[in-house]
Computed example of a mutant assay.
Amino acid sequence: MRRSVRAVPGVLMITAVIAAAPMATAAQGELIVDDTTYKNPHGCLYLGVDKNRSFTNNTDNTISIYPTTGCLGFATAILPAGESGTYTSKSVQIG
């Protein structure tokens, strides 16, 4: 009986942590990279070879622009919602 009583607080704590964790959702709006439009983008997008690209962030989220694949390492630029600019990039993280 003691084991089940001890397990209850642990289960409740795990449930509280899971409930408090933020849920990943897609950005609302459009991210335009050169001539390609991504509607309601989410996660990390691979853009192709490392080159200068024009970004227009018409979403409700900030995006992070990376010179590497997989959105790894340090972002070369952070672009808030409603902003645009030209950056060298291979991938972009939404949110």
Rank of each mutant, 00 (worst) to 15 (best):
Q28R: 15
A26I: 07
S89M: 03
S64H: 11
N58G: 13
H42Q: 14
S84P: 01
I32K: 15
P22T: 04
K39H: 12
N58T: 00
K39S: 11
V17G: 08
Y46A: 13
T25Y: 10
K51H: 04
D50Q: 13
H42P: 01
G85D: 05
L45W: 03
Y87Q: 08
D50I: 10
A75N: 00
H42A: 15
K39E: 11
L72D: 08
N52R: 11
R53G: 07
A27F: 03
D34R: 02
D35A: 14
I18D: 05
T56N: 12
G70W: 03
T68P: 03
I63L: 07
T59I: 06
T25F: 09
Y38C: 07
S91I: 06
P67A: 00
P67N: 06
I78K: 08
S84F: 07
L31I: 06
S91W: 00
G85M: 05
I63S: 00
T88L: 11
T76P: 02
I32S: 06
L47Q: 03
I14M: 12
I65F: 04
S89T: 09
Y46I: 08
S54I: 13
P22C: 03
L45F: 07
P80M: 01
Q28F: 06
D34I: 00
T36P: 01
T62W: 01
E83V: 03
P67I: 00
S54T: 15
C44M: 10
I78N: 11
G29P: 09
A27V: 10
F55L: 05
K51L: 06
L79S: 01
T86Q: 14
Y46Q: 14
V17S: 11
T76Y: 08
G43F: 07
S54M: 14
Y87R: 09
V49N: 12
T59W: 02
A75D: 00
S84K: 12
T56C: 01
A75S: 14
T69G: 14
V17K: 05
P80K: 05
L72G: 09
T25L: 10
A81W: 00
V33P: 02
N58L: 09
